[in-house]
Design a protein around this nucleic acid. Structure first.
Length: 648
RNA sequence: GCCGACGUAGCUCAGAUGGCCAGAGCAGCUGAUUCGUAAUCAGCAGGUCGCGGGUUCGAAUCCCGCUGUCGGCUCCA
């Protein structure tokens, strides 16, 4: 007999060799139906794996992250089997679980194609196999046997994967007619899978390397109940409604023009107004934090970027140089503001007393993003960074860094940004060829970031290989409506540019020293920030409630006098008022047209005149009831305050 | 750049298997209606069917190229 300990620390005894499933059955048959995997001493395993010694276990259902992982991964195997059925000879890459479902990368046989028209039959086949309740059978094999199996299947991808594995740890899983190299864990059998939906198809490079062959990636999702699938699809639809591209169009915030060029946003009056609010808000914070605004031109001589090192790194993949009548002259559209700011720093001798020097600019930059990269406002070719560069002494770095973190956290808090992830991006641990600058400086910079975040008590994740080519960074990532992560705020330590531009300051020791530079942009870019802001505030924040857009609407002339009185009482210059009376011939048209844009409709009629109130209707929310004028005044002021919150 | 899908009036979309002068709703314009309040009534206007080739007696509908958008991959100073 062995002792099994449950998460609530209760203990039960079982025969050695009991499986997780067996344990579940001993508790209740209903539970056994739902158990998809089990953690044994913290390690997730098949629910059918015999447990031979005392152990602490936790049973996982589909609802648990661990359960979901096994469920979707098993579904990937199921999809692979269906694909083998329709595309004999298909070669398989990898088929992992992802955040919302799973995918399988496959190399279709010569000449074969797959498109969304094929999805239905594949789904049908998967369900057909699933209904057979085939067990997922685990086998441990030697490396040689595994290689032999996939050599026979002529699958170069699996062979490559196996080659990287150590002998003795290799397992295969088989369900029905299909065997795959896999670590597991898996569902007890295919019968758990009751609903599947293939979502999309995409090209994906083998092992994520552009130089490798491009495989066909098929995204899908599956559920243990049809209803869950329906709900999932429903959620996806709902999320699409919050897409900033859609809302931006509906609210007339921004647009794009084929003629102007792709990835070059055109801000419409209201979008510009919103963006301006944000700029004013940030400018004010920055003033309080000792930043000084500067303005620099949109172009710079090629030489500037040769000096900065950007030309060598990005020159050929950027907008190409602008020629002038002078053959020897070449200018580049600025892809970043740093070099210009370096030259401002270098404009005169600097003393340690000048530092930290914080130069800020809403600088519009142009980057030639690959055509397939463009995406609404989140990835564009011309955008405005809320940029600033802090020039400081090496001992000021950490402190300055922390102050920037404060600004970013303050902004996120004020704008009620939900979940963000603070990501520390460091060098690739293996390949250091893509970075410029000395190891020593890199290490100093990396340490400064890590310490600053620790001292700020920031929860961070660390990504290796994500650093910029000139230095490590701390990024604040936020998700958009459909779950994609975007980098918004960013802070980067840079030892390189000061060196390349030979920036100096005279220290208290009367010697020349090299300053350190911190790049930072709390919003990241106005475009991306507005995009994410729109998606996060859609439906809850009166984005388009601007102070001049409330309307007073007396229902007819006979109540005009009372309406005048109401107006006087409201007496709020922030509220634009429109009086609709027939005598003034404003009429229904204005009303109808304005209705769409005006958040509050105030109605004054007989009833109101009697009770001394006004009727209030709010766009999209219906009647707010009759209110005393003073009450409404408070109400509207509150709404305006909410709107202006980021500005004050 | 790569894989896949898509591209019809300002917006949302209809237009099997190629064939009467390309349709609807909303928005716009004109006029009527003044109606407790997001779709009042009548009329008008609005489209090189993304662009360019080709097949055909005939193409928005089929083929090719280009371009843009969307979903991914790679990239993201």
């Amino acid at each position: 007999m062995i002792k099994i300990t449950f998460p609530d620390l209760s203990v039960r005894e079982y025969e050695a060799g009991i499986t997780g499933l067996g344990v579940a059955e001993s508790i209740s048959p209903r539970l056994a139906q739902d158990v998809v995997s089990v953690s044994v001493n913290g390690k997730v395993c098949d629910a059918t794996l015999p447990i031979t010694t005392d152990a602490a276990i936790k049973l996982h259902k589909f609802e648990d992250a661990e359960g979901q992982d096994a469920f979707w991964h098993s579904s990937a195997h199921l999809m692979a089997e269906a694909l083998e059925f329709f595309y004999p000879g298909v070669k398989l890459g990898i088929g992992p679980t992802i955040e919302n479902g799973f995918y399988y990368d496959v190399d279709l046989p010569e000449g074969a194609t797959i498109s969304d028209a094929d999805f239905a039959k594949i789904e049908q086949k998967m369900l057909e196999i699933a209904r057979g309740k085939h067990a997922y059978v685990r086998t441990e094999v030697s490396k040689a046997d595994a290689l032999a199996l996939f050599t026979q299947k002529e699958d170069p991808y699996k062979i490559e994967l196996i080659s990287d594995l150590t002998d003795g740890t290799i397992t295969l899983y088989t369900q029905n007619s299909f065997t795959d190299l896999c670590r597991g864990p898996h569902l007890p059998n295919t019968g758990f899978i009751k609903a599947v939906k293939l979502l999309s198809i995409a090209g994906a490079y083998w092992r994520g390397n552009e130089k490798n062959k491009q495989l066909t990636r098929i995204y899908a999702v599956s559920f243990p109940k049809q209803k869950l699938l329906a709900e999932h699809l429903e959620r996806l639809e709902e999320a699409k409604k919050r897409d900033h591209r859609r809302i931006g169009k509906e609210l007339e915030l921004f647009t794009f023009s084929k003629k102007v060029g792709m990835g070059l946003p055109l801000w419409l009056p209201r979008g510009a107004q919103l963006r301006d609010h944000l700029e004013q808000f940030l400018k004010k914070i920055q003033r309080q934090h000792g930043y000084e605004q500067v303005i620099t031109p949109h172009i710079g001589q090629k030489e500037l970027y040769v000096t900065s090192g950007h030309y060598a790194k990005y020159g050929k993949d950027s907008f190409q140089p602008i020629r002038t009548p002078d053959e020897n002259e070449e200018f580049l559209l600025k892809p970043m503001n740093c070099p210009h700011h370096c030259e401002i720093y270098a404009a005169r001798p600097r003393s340690y007393r000048d530092l930290p020097l914080r130069l800020a600019e809403f600088g519009t930059v142009y980057r030639y993003e690959q055509s397939g990269e463009l995406h609404g406002l989140t990835r564009v070719r011309g955008f405005t960074q809320d940029d600033a560069h802090i020039f400081c002494t090496p001992d000021q770095i950490k402190d300055e860094f922390k102050k920037v973190i404060d600004i970013i956290l303050y902004i996120f808090k004020v704008l009620d940004f939900p979940d963000f992830v603070a990501q520390i991006s460091l060098r690739d641990q293996h390949d250091r060829s893509k970075y410029i600058g000395s190891d020593e400086n890199w290490e100093k910079a990396e340490r400064a970031i890590i310490e600053a975040t620790q001292e700020k008590g920031l929860n961070t994740i660390t990504e290796y290989g994500e650093a910029a080519f000139y230095g490590p960074k701390l990024d604040f990532m936020v998700r958009d409506a459909i779950g994609r992560k975007w980098q918004l705020g960013t802070i980067q330590v840079d030892y390189n540019l000061p060196e390349r531009f030979e920036l100096e300051y005279i220290g208290s020791d009367d010697q020349r020293h090299r300053p350190v530079m911190i790049h930072r942009a709390p919003f990241g870019s106005m475009e991306r920030f507005v995009a994410v802001l729109i998606e996060h505030t859609a439906g809850k924040f009166p984005l388009w409630l601007t102070p001049d857009q409330a309307i007073i609407l007396p229902i007819s002339e006979k109540y005009h006098e009372y309406a005048e009185k109401v107006l006087k009482l409201l007496n709020n210059s922030e509220i634009r008022t429109l009086i609709d009376t027939r005598s003034e011939k404003i009429g229904r048209k204005i009303r109808d047209a304005e209705m769409k844009r005006i958040p509050y409709l105030l109605v004054v009629g007989e009833k109101e005149q009697e009770t001394g109130t006004i009727a209030v209707r709010k766009q999209g929310e219906g009647d707010q009831g009759s209110m005393m004028v003073e009450e409404f005044k408070e109400h509207i002021n509150k709404a305006i305050e909410d709107l202006l919150k980021p500005i004050n």
